[in-house]
Design a protein around this nucleic acid. Sequence first.
DNA 1: CAATAATTGCAAGGTAGCGAACGAATGTCA
DNA 2: TGACATTCGTTCGCTACCTTGCAATTATTG
Lengths: 149, 149
Amino acid sequence: MGDQANPEHLSVAAWTKRCYFAGRALMDATLRPYDLGATQWYVLWHLANNGPTVQRDLGRTLDLERATLSGIISTLVRKDLVAQTSSGDDQRQRLLTLTAAGEALWRKLPDLSFIHDTAFGGIDEADLATTIHVLRSATERLQNLLRKD
Amino acid sequence: MGDQANPEHLSVAAWTKRCYFAGRALMDATLRPYDLGATQWYVLWHLANNGPTVQRDLGRTLDLERATLSGIISTLVRKDLVAQTSSGDDQRQRLLTLTAAGEALWRKLPDLSFIHDTAFGGIDEADLATTIHVLRSATERLQNLLRKD
DNA sequence: CAATAATTGCAAGGTAGCGAACGAATGTCA
DNA sequence: TGACATTCGTTCGCTACCTTGCAATTATTG
């Protein structure tokens, strides 16, 4: 969030937010013709590349709360892109699979790697590493403080 | 979003998201006893420090869409923390002011600067500057691409 | 001055995120 | 074995973000 109107004086926190939303917006804009949200795309991407997955594992991989993922999955099931079967030994778990329609749609989707390339292409490797380090340590410190409550 | 379950191999993009949400979560947790969301806090903060403000200017300062801000303001008005008067020369504009209750609540709120300190305190100044530079240039490139459509 | 364009805010509808609470299934241990 | 705890998914209620479309107001321009 911006303390100042002038973009020169924004904090790390403010740029973190802006950057996140800019990337998200570009993803959303690219996927809009296909009626897909960014997180829905991540689910399809994972299923297309890793095959059927237990919902719990997918949640961990994509770092989503169970409640959040639940809603996204039900949207994808409603669109008939993903099938949710309760197969398996553990009757609590749900197995997620791409439907035929899901596979067909996935093949039609454009490659989104240009977004990451646009954002971080050509930037010094060392600077990227520094950025990851700063963001990661900040994230871990914040999460530690959260757990303390 | 995470390609890998292993936090060692996440991309810049994934850490940007994680870091944003970690800070957001800590803000939300701190403000929950006061029934305030993070963005609502930013609005009160701005009004408390800058006095009455036209809604349009506040939107620009906080980098929020008109529709988004509209909902947030109506929540704050419903809680009687902010008054929205259509005073002024331009009859389309709304002037936002803290109510007495809003001022009283603001004085009771805890200082949130510990969040930024937790996240980025003690980190090398040069690394912080690098991080800002990387995030800022990524954001600008993404926004340029967005405008092109 | 009248027609057109731009601006401001609102409402509706959709996506995504969270916490809390719940039922069903499974684990644990006295 | 039986009581208790944990895990998994869902639902509910909430914040916050976006787009589209609308109405009112103001600015511009022929």
